[in-house]
Amino acid sequence: MKKHYRSENNCLNCGTTVTDKFCPSCGQENLELHDNFLHLVLHSVSHYFHFESKFFNSIVPLFTKPGYLTKEYFAGKRASHLNPISMYIFISILFFFLFTANSNSNKKDIMEENAAQGSTITKDEAEKVKTVVGNTVSEKAGAYTYTILDNAQIIKDSASNRNDAVVYTNPTAAKADSAEKKGTTISFLDESALPLSLKDRMQKVMDDDLSGQLFINKLVSHLPKMMFILLPLFALILKLVHVRSRKQYAEHLIYSIHVHSFLFLFGSILIVLNWLLPFFGDWIQFLGVVVILWYIYRSMRNIYKSTRWRTVYKFFLLAFAYTFLMLMSGFIVVVATLYTI
């Protein structure tokens, strides 16, 4: 259906003179404001399919042609593809959403399995003791011993869940001890008010389920920020590895964004496949690692045009440096998260 354009040539958005259908300054289309419902719907649908065509024009080559989007970007063919940063943000949000859901699902399964195993072990041990006692004493005494074991286990479990212990002190002994330590300074400072060390905080997170879950949630929320900060550092490593290349830092950065976009999108697909085919989990992970290694190698060859063995050598340098940066960044994020929960 034909669009209704305004007869006036002033842009309603920025005021620039419009010589054609689109504003040369801001790009807004010079359409009539009071359009009928059918035109409004068709206009919205056309914008949607325009975005959809750009989406598929970007996602398909991102998977099938390593390095293609980077070359297209610096060849000036940018209107046909999604903006690299916008694409990265969209894909990273999708990945970390699935990653968080997968982590919570795995944690729930592990807790249920451990609880089942713990219950089974306690019963088995009690049955063994009951059998031994039953062979030497009467059946009534064996059953009584089994009851005592169960009660002792309940008391032990309830005691282990207490955070504070109650200490009863003999007043006479306390006075004697005070008399012996006469002249010493008595501190009324509550030790629990002192800042916990890193080891104590880690122990608290491991022992307390609530603190552990809060730690995981905050840690996962920090990961997208960490990866976004690592993007320019990854590009810097590329610049150093290809020090003789004439490429500018911006070219390394755009390539870095496209590589990370592929990693996050491919990682999202692996998570979904692992949900759908849990019995092939190990094979899916192995295949994922192989595809990722091949993709990075192939994209480096297409972008930097190095020989096969030179690309492999630079790939290992890049992997070593980036792994070191990720470990350092991960350690800093873990420590910062422990001190903020």
Rank of each mutant, 00 (worst) to 15 (best):
20 D>S: 14
102 N>W: 08
227 M>T: 12
306 S>H: 09
247 K>G: 13
302 N>S: 15
334 V>H: 11
23 C>F: 08
121 I>S: 09
27 G>L: 06
310 R>G: 15
274 N>I: 00
38 L>M: 02
295 Y>L: 03
42 L>E: 00
329 S>H: 02
208 D>S: 06
155 I>R: 04
221 S>I: 02
95 F>Q: 00
64 T>L: 14
142 G>T: 02
242 H>V: 05
51 F>Q: 01
308 R>D: 07
331 F>R: 01
308 R>E: 04
2 K>A: 10
335 V>L: 06
154 I>T: 09
55 F>C: 01
33 L>E: 08
102 N>I: 02
295 Y>C: 06
189 L>C: 03
245 S>Y: 04
201 R>W: 02
33 L>H: 05
286 F>T: 06
108 K>M: 06
239 K>N: 15
195 P>Q: 01
49 F>P: 00
242 H>N: 15
151 N>C: 03
60 V>T: 14
239 K>Q: 14
260 H>Y: 13
340 T>E: 13
43 H>N: 00
102 N>M: 10
6 R>T: 03
29 E>D: 01
281 G>A: 07
79 A>F: 08
234 F>P: 11
157 D>C: 02
263 L>Y: 10
228 F>S: 10
331 F>I: 04
47 H>W: 00
341 I>W: 10
310 R>P: 10
268 S>C: 07
